[in-house]
């Protein structure tokens, strides 16, 4: 079972830092002037009338990079416990970690060759 009493101050800090933007919004809501006009509220598109919807299709590349990111991020999360107790675990676990990293390197070379890391 986890004992999270260490995190008490962390949670308090989180609450206080979440209060800061709310506080800023409230002060600005009280102080700031309000004057609504249709031209002012329309979205900016270099001074002309906005054409069509802004939520348009975008490049598939963003998804590819996000996928590769998830792979490597999970890898580093798995490597952290190993790195923290490296002096205890020794050579055999180092070889296991090396194999783990090598598999991922092979995966990244595959992604590279298949063009997942290409922008154009």
């Amino acid at each position: 079972m986890f004992l999270l009493y260490e995190y008490d101050i962390f949670w308090a800090f989180l609450i206080i830092s979440s209060v800061i933007p709310i506080f800023a919004f409230v002060i600005s809501g009280v102080l700031a002037p309000i004057s609504k006009r249709p031209e002012k509220l329309s979205s900016y598109e270099s001074g002309i009338e906005p054409m069509g919807d802004a939520w348009l299709q975008f490049r598939i590349c963003y998804y590819m990079f996000a996928l590769v990111f998830v792979v490597f991020d999970v890898e580093t999360v798995f490597l952290y416990p190993w790195a923290m107790s490296f002096d205890v675990l020794g050579v055999s676990v180092f070889i296991e970690a090396l194999i783990f990293v090598l598999i991922l390197i092979v995966g990244s070379i595959y992604a590279w060759r298949k063009g997942a890391l290409e922008w154009s």
Binding site: S17, S18, I20, L31
Partner: peptide, 29 residues
């Protein structure tokens, strides 16, 4: 603080306000 808060007419007001708050909170923490 004294400047007007403009919400774009066709935008999502909730996401529009939460976005900067999340950016600040996550860095402050």
């Amino acid at each position: 603080l004294f400047k007007e808060n403009i919400f774009p007419a066709r935008g999502e007001t909730l996401l529009f306000s939460i976005g900067p708050s999340i950016a600040v909170i996550s860095i402050l923490v």
